[in-house]
Design a binder for these strands. Structure first.
Lengths: 341, 341
DNA sequence: GATTAGCACTCATTGGTGTTGAGTGCTAAC
DNA sequence: GTTAGCACTCAACACCAATGAGTGCTAATC
């Protein structure tokens, strides 16, 4: 258990380090107006905190920096909320009004604003295939040989895909195929769609039309795309402005993760509801061991609509970020309800 | 006019520098097996080439590096084509087979492969609003208050957009609106859509339904999105592997341009057909003065379908890149014809 | 007249050395 | 329990000499 003074010192060190990115010495803490202990006293506590694994020393003659465990303690016990500024709130609120007719536009716009306000990277993920099911399927003939497939998910999310048809598929065939799919697939979660397609749908389809296999694989392709969550990124290069990432090689690994959707998604696995903070190695991804990720789920009526994450250095302004996400998810939920209810 | 030997020396310097990223000295050229002149002779020619502005010297006791003008001469007169390797061709050809049902998928996949094969960044732009016109418009009711608008362009490109309707718009209304838009807007280039919408469509619409203004602005929003070319990026972080971009600050500017679509598009302005090379300052964009952009238009039947660009350091393997793009555009055109004809 | 050997000169790079100063741990005094 | 005092550590910086890659110029050679 930490003493009151030790908690105060830890808090001061984390705050200072977040601001300056430089190791914090005992003297600089002692000089703070709200501190009335000598550097020597503080040094003793710092040594204790280091023994507890909450602080680290880059080298003997340097100050202390927080360890992962130190940040964790800070986030869990010491953080002072309400870091969201008046003007930031205004900016965030504005977007709900501005983009009020377009859900995806609003979400991505929100992410852009947050990344600008924080100077970190924001990542938006749509819901994954476990949380969404097919609501409606439609085939729209385009030319003699092409059609547009339109897939609507239960979240209200819509996808389309142009497909080129094999010869000999009539308008009537298409209507029947669409009807069949709506019959069989409505309400089926996307991760099960493939299975159902090849069991229940396949047999019946065979009696309707030729080229059945080809059409099935086309449909599979089309629906597969919907099963993959959509990713939106903003401020990916902000990480380059952080002094601890002056080295190109360190940054390369991080940006690579951001560029490859599957690797990026692994970061968002097994999240629980609400706001969550993952610090450094807690993310379990080698390349971003030096980064923290704050995530928030967006949902309405128990339906998961997406996840928004803020990626920055472990030396992140946790209070500010958590405050913003807290505010933002509430606003987005309200917007969703206004749009789709 | 350059002498034969001078051309050879320039070519050798550019080739060497592209490979090594180090200033090239007279001695190293003289040692090449296809060269039979002494370093002193080569030095004389190098001095001449520098006077002509084709070479530069970082400092007195260093070798020479090509100037922008030098690269330009190299690209225009000295380049040796056919740099595309057998295995690369196989990789590129594979994609046409693999993604043969999905145009956008094939194009973006192609870009990914090219960026991997070259280690540069590849950028794909859809056609802009001057080169495309509206072919078909459809409104698909989704729930009581929402609908999906589907916009088909004359290129075969399809876009959708979910819109939430004002109260009191019936199915019949929607059918009429769609019919009206198809009447008035079919064949209209996207950049003119807004004008036509507010002149020809507006009046007639007013007699059909209430809430006319709101619907008009919804439609404008919907169609506007189509007017903006779609952008696809791949290998954006490859630039970090180039030795001349070891410095984070230099890279930041470049990645920023890539992240902001409008700035990125400015790079692609006023391109003529076919393959084009823009070296360093020729791009007219401060941030990428140290980069070259090779672009190729993709078209079928005189219809512009998109542009693919490769962005790398001025010290770029021009021969290889041009060869690949040459090959690729041909393949993509064939794929398009197979899909939509 | 074109080419080349020879030579003095330039200058970025590298490695070694001493200095500085921020910060520590420990001990003894308060 | 707190603090002053002091010896100690070590990254960062500045300075300096040595190195060597590469040049330009001149005079000799083909």
């Amino acid at each position: 258990m930490l003493s009151e003074r030790q908690r105060m010192i830890l808090s001061a060190i984390v705050d200072d380090y977040i601001r300056s990115a430089e190791p914090v010495g005992s003297r600089s803490i002692s000089k703070r107006s709200d501190v009335s202990f000598s550097p020597a006293t503080i040094r003793n506590d710092m040594a204790d905190l280091e023994e507890l694994g909450l602080l680290e020393q880059p080298h003997t003659s340097a100050g202390r920096i927080p360890s992962i465990k130190g940040y964790r303690y800070y986030v869990d016990h010491l953080i002072h909320q309400g870091g969201v500024k008046e003007q930031d709130v205004k900016r965030l609120r504005g977007l709900v009004a501005e983009k009020m007719n377009h859900w995806e536009g609003a979400v991505s716009h929100a992410a852009t604003i947050v990344s600008q306000l924080t100077n970190y990277t924001s990542i938006v993920l749509g819901p994954d295939s476990f949380h969404t099911s097919l609501k409606h399927f439609q085939l729209l003939p385009l030319t003699d040989t092409t059609a547009v497939a339109i897939v609507v998910a239960n979240t209200g999310h819509v996808e389309h895909r142009t497909i080129s048809l094999p010869d000999g598929v009539s308008m009537d065939d298409m209507r029947r195929i669409a009807g069949l799919l709506n019959d069989k697939l409505t309400g089926v979660p996307f991760y099960k769609v493939k299975t159902v397609l090849y069991t229940e749908v396949a047999n019946e389809l065979r009696s309707y039309v030729d080229h059945c296999e080809h059409i099935l694989s086309l449909l599979e392709d089309t629906l597969k795309e919907d099963a993959e969550p959509k990713v939106f990124l903003s401020g990916a290069t902000n990480i380059l402005m952080q002094p601890e990432f002056k080295d190109v090689d360190k940054v390369k690994g991080i940006l690579d993760v951001l560029e490859e959707t599957p690797r990026l998604m692994r970061l968002f696995q097994s999240l629980s509801d609400g706001i969550q903070v993952r610090i450094g190695t807690e993310n379990g991804v080698e390349a971003i061991n030096q980064c923290s990720l704050v995530t928030a789920t967006i949902s309405a009526d128990g339906q998961l609509l997406g996840t928004i994450g803020i990626l920055g250095p472990t030396r992140m302004e946790y209070g500010k970020v958590i405050g913003m996400l807290d505010y933002l998810t509430g606003d987005l939920t309200r917007l969703y309800n206004r749009l789709y209810k």
